[in-house]
Every structure is written in C-alpha cells, then in structure tokens.
Amino acid sequence: MAVNVISSGLSTTVQDLGRPGYYHLGIPISGGMDRFALRAANMLVGNDEGAAVLEAVFLGPELEFTAPATVAVTGGDLPPRLNGDGRSTWEAFPVKAGDRLSFGYLRSGARVYIAVSGGIDVPVKLGSRSTYTLGALGGHEGRALKAGDSLPLGEGAGGKGAIPANLRRMPGSPAELRMLPGLYWHRITAAAGKQFFADTWKVAPEADRIGYRFKGGTVLDFVPREPPFGAGSNPSNIVDACYPYGSIQVPGGTEPIVLHRDAVSGGGYMMLGCVISADMDLIGQLQPHSPARFVEVSMDQALAARADRQAALARLRAHLGR
C-alpha cells in the first residue's frame, strides 16, 4: 500500500504532531502548522489524531493510490478532485487502487492536510515522522516531496463523516493573533508598545514553516541603553538566547517575525512576547498580504483560549462519534 507522488505541489511535506524534546540541540518541534486541521483530517479517516499526514501549502500535489483507502482533506479551501471529479474538503471519501487525487486553485487559507487511512508510514526519527527540511531530518528522506516519490501507508480501518463549517477553526480578516507581552518587551517604549497593538499588519512574502514575517506597521522605538557585552550594537540585539515557539522577534525594530514549527531555536534579536498556543494554528492558514492584528492578552486569558481550543477538538470528536 502506497501513495505515489505524480506532482509535488509547491512544498508538500510529511507532518505529524511534532518532535518535542530536542530543542536544546537546535532541532525544532516541527509538525503540522495547523494542528487543529491535522487532527481533524486524521479523525475523519479513522486514524490516531497524531498519525502522519501530508501538509501542502498554496498549491496541492497530485497523488496516486495503489490500494483502496479513505482520504480526507482539511484546513484551507484547496478543492480536491478525484480523477477530475470534485470532492469536498473536511469530508472523508473513499479511493480505489489507481485513483488520482489532484487539487484546484486555493480559495482561502494557506495549508491543507491530506490524511489517508493508516497514515503515512515513513520511518520515525527522534520520535516523530515530521519533516524538518533545514536539518534534512524525518519525513520522506528529510525533504519536501518530489514527483516519483512513493510513500508507504500503514494499516487503517478507515472512517467516514464530515465536519460542518461551524466546527472548523479558521482565521478571520484581519486575523487576530492574541499574544502575551513579555521576554524583552521592556526594551521598547510604552508608546511603541501601544502602537504595536493598534497597527494592522500584513503578512510578508517571507512566510514559511520557520516563521511568518509581518510588515506595514510602525517602526518600534527602543528604550536607550549601553549595549551589553556580547549583544551587538543594534538596539534590537541581545546576547544570543533561546527563541520560544511562537515568539515575536523584531530585527532592527522594523518587521515582526513569529517563529513557527520549524523555528530557529535561538539567536540575537529581542522578542516582544509570544503568540498564545491557541492561536498558532491560525498563522498556518495566513496567505502573504493578508491583514493581521496582534491582540494583548493576560496569562489567564491565554489559558482560557487554550481550554476553548481543546473544547473545540472535543466537539469534533463528539460529532464524529469518537
């Protein structure tokens, strides 16, 4: 049982829920950028929620199945076609040996998750099947898929059902990304902090699995200081430190970058705080040029949002009778 790659799409990778435990070596957590959609895709095809799936961005791949299976596509609205006939996203559908899955043009969102019953059975590396392309680790040969690749599938019973729009989770416009100020927030002036939240930003073209850059907001004013030894002379420099997943760094005070699943694990730029865990999925669905705002929250509000996201996943499970 296998999935053959006929064409690769823009950058299609094998991802699961990620590879925790190796950040101290510079190996990021990786895994799907929109893990809500990843879990939903697996639920629809009867897999464990953390089974490995394909993550495609902007442009879908073309795939051929060598055996019957169940497939589901979740996340952004990238319309699936089976042998040329339309299929719905967020809905399980059967495929036969020899069937071909392709995609139309992206209508909304940025990434889709293609789950196949049994899961993509590439070797587990450091506890995960996720692809970390920069480090050539995991997934299929440590890289994005290419035409001619063949991916083994596990055994799976399959599943059925659909997830209605009110049970999905996608960003609004502008996307509201809630963040907890902290880390080196004290390095900018109070007025700059206020303006950072007041501005509407736009996703820059440099937006990938490592991080999302935002532009179009006001340049930050820093609190004056003597550069600490080893930090560097720019006011945005710090002595190289760890970068948390979700942290917002602002090199030179100009364009914030939110680090995501394939984050660089550390470096020498100050960070304003972190986007809360509940909203990291939303970033994975933002296209370049789409508007976004950062919304200040407290730790209590961050934890309430985390509970809301877990409740939304519980509603999916209940809906599908899992």
């Binding site: 963040m179 907890l180 902290g182 880390l183 600490p228 030894f229 080893g230 930090a231 710090i238 002595v239 430190a241 760890c242 948390p244 997943y245 979700g246 942290s247 960070m271 705080g273 972190c274 986007v275 809360i276 865990s277 730790m299 961050a302 934890l303 985390r306």
Partner: peptide, 17 residues
C-alpha cells in the same frame, strides 16, 4: 518572564560572561 502559555524564559545576565 513567561513566553506565552508554554514557556518560561530566564535571563541570567544581559551581558555575556
């Protein structure tokens, strides 16, 4: 300092030593 709801960041010193 808390880094979102999943991290604690600890700065021992602003300068390297």
């Amino acid at each position: 300092s808390f880094g979102g709801d999943e991290h604690i960041f600890a700065e021992v010193s602003e300068e390297m030593s």
